[in-house]
Design a binder for these strands. Structure first.
Lengths: 136, 136
DNA sequence: TTCGTACCAAATAAAAATTATCTAAAGGAA
DNA sequence: TTCCTTTAGATAATTTTTATTTGGTACGAA
């Protein structure tokens, strides 16, 4: 359990009951999509609006508190930002497990007790073309 | 330029004008989202319905003709299925470049003339729990 | 304290995206 | 060609996401 009040302030965001509840909900299992988050928070705070959850997920993502995990064919999951890591995503039950390792990719794949079906590696950044345009 | 008629049949799908046009549109730049595909195809075939594009993307994905590339914060892109590879996604212009390499992850990252911001590695498969349930 | 400002939540409303339904037409095999 | 099955197109319905409006609350300055 982290101190989410401080986490929010450290990123320049006001700490509100709703934001802390959203972060609490995510931290329970590490990854949740918006419906799971809303369903969790609404139990503790029945008047919360789904739009509030949308807005706060976006603002917390933009300010580096959260990361969005794009999952093929499903709604994005959100996780509290931490160092880069792998996601082992089960195509059957949808569970996501984190896996931090600095080994080579082949090593990772062979080590796992996980029936691998698909590897998805996306590197986000600024491409050469955009980089040179920014400089000029 | 591939023979998309044969590709479809090889995956047990009927070859229709619309499906071939969708595949042609994707193959031009390698990755397109649904709006880009629709805008391309509608020029050649003005009566095509957006729902047709949706339906065909899903069916061609389910039958292994296409892959969905989840892009954080944007609509999924679709690509014609091939061997696993990296995606270099520019957060500025949205361009996607394929990068096939069997080197270690660190090597890949350092080699690139690409200002890396975020690594997203998702491995899809069947987790241990689901695997044992299927066996029983 | 009393304003004024800024930010936020909630409640709609609105817009956008996706899926379902139904009928006519096209594809593929005999 | 003929038949059967699948698909496309049109439309409606649903779902998802975003925008707008209103009211509340915290904070600082006067």
């Amino acid at each position: 359990m982290q101190n989410f009040v401080e986490l929010l302030k450290a990123h320049g965001l006001k700490s509100t009951f709703q934001r802390v509840q959203i972060l609490e909900a995510i931290s329970i299992c590490g990854h949740k999509d918006i419906d799971e988050i809303y369903n969790d928070v609404v139990k503790l705070h029945p008047t919360i609006s789904l739009a509030t959850v949308y807005k706060n997920l976006i603002i917390m993502k933009d300010n580096g508190v959260l990361c969005e995990v794009s999952v093929s064919g499903k709604k994005s999951k959100y996780e509290i930002k931490k160092e880069d890591h792998l996601h082992l995503i089960c195509t059957h039950c949808g569970s996501i497990e984190d896996f931090t390792l600095e080994a080579s990719f082949d090593k990772i794949v062979n080590l796992q007790d996980f029936e691998l079906q698909k590897k998805e590696i996306n590197l986000y950044g600024i491409c050469t073309k955009c980089h040179s345009q920014k400089a000029s």
